[in-house]
Design a protein around this nucleic acid. Sequence first.
DNA 1: CCAGAGTTTGAGCAAATGCCCAACCAGTGA
DNA 2: TCACTGGTTGGGCATTTGCTCAAACTCTGG
Lengths: 314, 314
Amino acid sequence: MADPDPTPQDEAARAGWLYYVGGLTQDQVATELGVSRQRAQRLVARAMADGLVHVRLEHKISACLDLEAALAKRFDLHLARVVPALPEGMDTATATAPAAAQVLERYLAQSDPLVIAFGTGRALSAMAAEVMRTPHAQHRIVSLISNIAPDGSASFYDVIMRMADKLQLPHYPMLVPVITDTVAERALFNALRPVQAVMQLADQADVTFVGIGQINDDAPLYKDGFITRAQLDELLAAGAVGEIVGGAIDAQGRYIDTPTTRLIGSFRIPAGRDKPVIGIAAGKSKLAAMRAALTGRLINGLVTDESTARALLG
Amino acid sequence: MADPDPTPQDEAARAGWLYYVGGLTQDQVATELGVSRQRAQRLVARAMADGLVHVRLEHKISACLDLEAALAKRFDLHLARVVPALPEGMDTATATAPAAAQVLERYLAQSDPLVIAFGTGRALSAMAAEVMRTPHAQHRIVSLISNIAPDGSASFYDVIMRMADKLQLPHYPMLVPVITDTVAERALFNALRPVQAVMQLADQADVTFVGIGQINDDAPLYKDGFITRAQLDELLAAGAVGEIVGGAIDAQGRYIDTPTTRLIGSFRIPAGRDKPVIGIAAGKSKLAAMRAALTGRLINGLVTDESTARALLG
DNA sequence: CCAGAGTTTGAGCAAATGCCCAACCAGTGA
DNA sequence: TCACTGGTTGGGCATTTGCTCAAACTCTGG
């Protein structure tokens, strides 16, 4: 019974197994593993924190189903997914994450190799955490936008790396910084061979997952230090209400063009794509941006929550 | 906020969502839903009991991985899956179920249509409960053995119906009773057109899932009233140690032939099949039967638990 | 309108859980 | 060797959860 050296994660997994699958109490888990009750509790908590444990709900609440149908019809979407709302002010990313992960997994399960493109942001990051193994085909995953700020620092949400790590797939990170200092510098990056390869791959992606950013005082682009206050103001003045993988859009979902937008180094998603482009976003603050992205047909699939769905329709 | 008529199951799902995905306490769930704490607790419990909530572990414990490799090598298996053992005497079916469901889901995700065959029993039944809906291709599912006792009553574990119901797939139940009264009666059944269709389908199944039954005083076949004490004794006397979809086998995994076995109305799985035949079983009492099935090459895939795996290898 | 069976409800309570804190332990640098 | 820092351990306690039980409620048949 005495394993020589069960790694800490192994122990956590075992504790989590006994607790969640076996339905033992933490006391029983402790006895079984020969550790104290507290340690068992910590192992179980750790299994959860490390993302070893995944919880999903099977049943679709009819109210949500109705909203999905309504969204799909209203905005002519390939796919609409609505999850029950968490109480006001709760983290919306964790709410959408399991549903988004499920959508992604459906593509991952496809047997012919796909190119799958990802944006960044909290929603995508949460999705990455929720995705489960799929030992299948050789898909390729490509990033539409880097997470490198102009000062060279990286923001947290490195979606593509987390994803590649988890799924063991060949991946193509975006090399161009989110925003460069001059147009010339950006052109320099774009001329690079590997950058062109990534852009080309992004262009032919079989399915694309993006977050949707609001452009206002809480704009992620600004909060995370990618653009300055002045640049934010410039975008606002030009009528920007939202942003998709860095591309600022107005209320009609048209890309806007200002000195700042010309410095952005991400792949620009074309309007009205045939292939699925799935937006993952929820929350009051993102409403205007989401409406814009939907009307501009920049996305043709949506994962959101109940209250956001209602607001979009009402 | 006030939905007109949320079905009871909707409410349960919503409560489960808030509790498990949202991480709220039952008190908060109660407030959110506008019900008493007790009702919230009951809804959450119900969501679990109704199988709406699915919990899975991502991490593979290295000890189990080692056992999988060893099993695959020793018995030349296509697939071996070993889950951590639950403490002595705990229900083994619930332990293997999530892993088995995951294996099945992998096949379900395949895009070209498959024929999937199922046996019966507690292990398969538990697996059925754990499977999550995969909205994909038009597979067909076929039953290898009915659950009808000679007196016309059905045992609980109606795997194929549960599965078909859950996955919305066309299904082909086995019509022949598990055991008939006379050989002539059995022949009568087998001559029926639909029966022959089912048998043929079973024969060409792309993947087969079966439980493994022990033949001893606790034999499921006997316990569930399919065979009499006299018939059990007859099988034992003929050297039976186990049974796969009703077919009694000796310690070497060869089908045995007695008056009783000639009355059995199930599909007989041939030895040494190429296509995957996955056995799902665990527990001390099943050891001899499992060893027999493995050595006789009646199965070429196995889902079991840690202690059983160790015992099989040791 | 009422009696009765079966179900649902909420109060109360015991068990289980999460978390804080002080004690302890291992490794490091003086 | 010793003091110190960072991390781990288990005791104790507040919160949360599961469960029992009696009361209330609903549905049915007289």
